[in-house]
Nucleic acid binder design. Structure first.
Lengths: 358, 358
DNA sequence: ATACTCAATGCGAACGTTCGCACGAACATT
DNA sequence: AATGTTCGTGCGAACGTTCGCATTGAGTAT
């Protein structure tokens, strides 16, 4: 159709010989009409190629069918391995229910951040929010709770805050890693982790310690290296760990993400270790590249696709039933992907753990 | 404010003692009022914390101030190094001009794809589109041109299509790579590239060949390996290349992305080559991890941040001036990042090429 | 027959803006 | 003094829906 004129309800109604309000009701399934009438209406809709005007619809119904999402940008020079998958799964899940995702920019300044959220809410542009990279004392959570505006978070925050969230059980992931290493005979296990402010880090550390305790291994403070989650830190920390006197030297290094693990691998190799057999190194995230590194990296895969779907579905449920409150955290179990960096046993590339999601 | 009641134009107007239409005009800068009146209006706006209702605004003005964007999902198991940066830069650039980005799901089926675009357009939800991963005969381009609906593409398509686009000059990137290798004395240069259908591949191949011609090196068909852009292909192809008889064996391998380059590095190392000194291997994309691989990878960095900003700004210009047609392709020059994989000369990590963008 | 329900449709009024024009007053121009 | 011109403001209408009730006519129980 070249003419930019779009059909409206009224034109459909005229063609079908009913009032336009009736057409509206039929399209929204709010009324049951005799088959003949309804058929006429649908024919008219087809004939005119009618598509409801979304703006008018949301003006009147006060529902924008739009979900706001914003994520912290990855520090330059770092890859965000889960962003694409999370975004795709959310966008798809949303579309299946007639929603779209609206992206807005991250705002480091707390003052402006509030303003950004306020504007999005009060302009009526969105029905709810999805938050990611949630931390302690998260101002976004406080603001949305104060405004009683619907949202679902990816990640937990302070335990005393009550809000709907989905999270990956990072502690369980670490526990699986430690169990795996213990099973292979390791007793001196070091960790490359984040500073204690990090909420994600705290959960993972808890799981890590639980794993040690299960195995009756007392934690050693010298074996907890804390820093930024980049290869350079993993590299430096590993040089330090492997410079300890022989009796105090760890035989396994558990990195809290793949980037640190890669740095650790580099350091160990540089010092002449055969990674996998002489020292075990593990990561976390199962970055797509993890299977291709040398040696391939044992890591923990997060079911991101599922997280995205659940976030969206939970939010939409919340929007449809504002009365039902469900301020609990759904935990999802991650998967341990064992490769040569912790075992020394190489698996052929084409037999590496396949990805299950589309 | 606990009561979900938001202030409207009328309430602001009552407080300021003018008609609500006047307030509207002031807010939109469509009229110049005496300072006193205008001040009263702004005070009222402040006092009531007024934020215009976006839906009502776009219903009347027929402008949604929303840009639709959709991207091809990364094949599972592959990282999309540029997604985060592109998205962030577009979202930020859009917000600066009062626009937001609406994400919608990729649709492989061409029938449904048309339908998805049609619905987005005819429901009045968006003002324009940004396309990425553009290919030859791209159905999205054809449809949007047919509908005369505003869009800007990241990437070129058939030369006979006339539409506004931004692209990175991949050919120039390859040319820089080849010049660099030739300068270092290489004459036998192989390429790991995509199948000929790939539009991006074609541009890069052109640059690659131009580089050879410049140096007076005749292209050798056996040195062009075509396959999927994953490490596994780079690995296999490199095994083949290095199994050629000595006189026919390349001394440099130019991979058309970093993933293939990593596979190539692995293969070469496995065959006992010292990558960098005995064989040069280069990538393309400058994946964040490229500086951390062993050896660090020479690659071509794409100015993605700039691309995102230009895409958005160009589209908004188009929306504001529908009369001015500008169906040309803006080319942006990529940057060659030289590291040890092509020179054998390691640079310290902290002196590696910094990222310039926020 | 009368009142009573129910299904099928219609109608007027919002929703909160922007648009286009009109109006009155002040001021400059003939 | 009559006539334009500009400025500041107001007014009614429209944008395309959904909402809530009102209305009609047919069927059913009293």
């Amino acid at each position: 159709m070249n003419p930019p004129k779009r059909a409206t309800l009224k034109e459909v109604a005229r063609l079908a010989g009913v009032s336009y309000q009736t057409v509206s009701k039929v399209l929204n399934g709010q009324v049951q009409l005799p088959a003949a009438t309804e058929a006429r209406i649908w024919e008219a809709v087809q004939a005119l190629n009618y598509i409801p005007n979304h703006t008018a619809r949301s003006l009147r119904s006060r529902r924008s069918h739009t979900i706001a999402y914003c994520w912290a940008p990855t520090a330059t020079g770092q890859a965000n391995p889960i962003l694409d998958e999370l975004l795709q799964s959310m966008v798809q899940a949303a579309e299946r229910q007639g929603y779209y995702l609206l992206c807005f920019p991250n705002q480091p300044d707390p003052q402006r951040l509030r303003e950004a959220y306020r504007e999005l809410i009060d302009s009526g542009r969105v029905d709810g929010f999805i938050l990611s990279s949630v931390e302690y004392e998260d101002p976004r959570i406080l603001y949305l709770m104060e405004r009683r505006f619907p949202f679902v978070a990816f990640g937990r925050s302070n335990p005393e805050y009550q809000f709907p969230s989905i999270d990956i059980d990072g502690g369980l992931g670490m526990l699986k890693v430690v169990r795996h290493l213990v099973e292979r005979g390791h007793r001196r296990i070091a960790a490359l982790t984040w500073p204690p402010e990090s909420r994600v880090g705290a959960n993972r550390i808890a799981g890590f310690l639980q794993g040690l305790i299960e195995a009756g291994i007392p934690p050693v403070p010298e074996w907890m290296e804390r820093g930024e989650g980049v290869p350079a830190f993993g590299y430096q920390a590993t040089l330090r760990l492997l410079a300890l006197p022989e009796s105090m030297r760890p035989t396994a290094i558990v990195a809290f993400n793949d980037a640190m693990a890669l740095g650790a691998v580099r350091a160990a190799q540089q010092l002449g270790y055969r990674v996998g057999s002489e020292i075990a190194i593990t990561g976390f995230d199962d970055t797509p590249l993890a299977r291709y590194t040398i040696p391939p990296l044992t890591s923990v895969r997060q079911p991101i696709w599922e997280v995205g779907e659940r976030l969206v579905n939970r939010l939409i449920t919340l929007l449809d039933h504002p009365d039902i409150s469900s301020p609990y955290c759904e935990l999802i179990e991650p998967e341990l992907i064992i490769r040569a960096s912790s075992t020394g046993e190489e698996i052929p590339l084409d037999q590496d753990h396949p990805y299950l999601y589309p």
